Simulated scan of single mutants.
Amino acid sequence: MTRSETVHAGPLSFHCLVAGEAGRPLLLFLHGFPEYSGAWAEMLERLSDRFFCVAPDQRGYGSSSKPTEVRDYATGKLAADAAAILTHFAPGARAVVGHDWGASVAYALAFSRPELMERLVIMNGVHPVPFQRALAAGGAQSEASQYIHYLRSERAEARLSADDYAGMMRLFTKDMDIDWLRGERRADYLRAWSAPGALTGMLNWYRASPMKVADPGEPLADDPLAGLDPERVRVRPPHLLIWGDGDTALLPAAADGLETFCDALTRAHVAGADHWLHHQKPDEVAALIAEFCAD
Rank of each mutant, 00 (worst) to 15 (best):
Arg24Ile: 06
Leu250Asn: 00
Gly217Met: 10
Gly139Thr: 03
Ser153Gly: 12
Arg191Asp: 12
Ala162Asp: 13
Phe172His: 10
Ala264Tyr: 07
Phe261Met: 05
Leu116Gln: 01
Ser209Ala: 14
His15Asn: 12
Phe261Ile: 07
Gly246Met: 05
Asp256Tyr: 07
Ala80Cys: 04
Ala162Met: 10
Gly98Asn: 02
Tyr107Ala: 07
Gly167Phe: 01
Arg182Gly: 11
Phe172Glu: 00
Met117Asp: 01
Ser4Glu: 15
Met168Arg: 07
His15Gln: 11
Glu218Tyr: 09
Glu154Ala: 15
Ile289Gly: 06
Gly227Lys: 04
Thr260Trp: 02
Pro224Thr: 10
Met211Thr: 14
Gly139Met: 03
Leu181Ala: 05
Met168Trp: 05
Leu190Gly: 04
Glu42Tyr: 09
Asp175Pro: 03
Val54His: 10
Ala82Tyr: 07
Arg3Gln: 14
Arg155Met: 13
Arg191Tyr: 08
Thr260Asp: 09
Arg113Leu: 09
Val121Asp: 10
Glu218Ile: 13
Leu199Gln: 11
Asp215Lys: 15
Ile242Asp: 02
His88Trp: 01
Trp101Gln: 12
Pro25Arg: 04
Ser4Ile: 15
Leu228Arg: 11
Pro114Cys: 04
Pro56Met: 08
Pro219Gln: 06
Ala253Tyr: 01
Gly244Trp: 03
Arg152Gln: 12
Arg46Glu: 00
Gly138Trp: 01
Gly125Thr: 06
Gly227Pro: 03
His269Arg: 15
Val233Leu: 09
Ala9Asn: 10
Ala55Leu: 08
Leu250Trp: 02
Leu44Gln: 14
Leu30Gln: 09
Ala137Trp: 01
Val105His: 11
Leu225Lys: 11
Ala134Trp: 07
Met123Pro: 00
Ser153Glu: 09
Val70Gly: 05
Arg3Leu: 14
Ala221Phe: 01
Gly76Leu: 13
Ser194Asn: 13
Leu26Val: 08
Gly227Leu: 03
Gly138Pro: 02
Met168Ile: 08
Leu44Glu: 10
Gly38Ser: 11
Ser13Lys: 13
Glu35Asn: 13
Glu115Thr: 06
Ser209Phe: 03
Ser145Leu: 02
Gly272Gln: 01
Leu86Cys: 03
Val235Phe: 09
Val126Ala: 15
Lys77Pro: 03
Ala136Asn: 02
His127Pro: 04
Asp175His: 13
Gly246Arg: 03
Ile148Pro: 05
Gly10Glu: 00
Glu5Gly: 07
Leu199Ser: 06
Gly98Arg: 02
Glu291Thr: 14
Arg71Thr: 14
Arg185Cys: 06
Gly20Pro: 00
Thr173Ser: 15
Asp100Arg: 03
Pro230Glu: 05
Glu118Asn: 06
Pro11Gly: 13
Glu184Thr: 15
Ala22Asp: 10
Val18Leu: 08
His275Thr: 02
Asp163Ser: 15
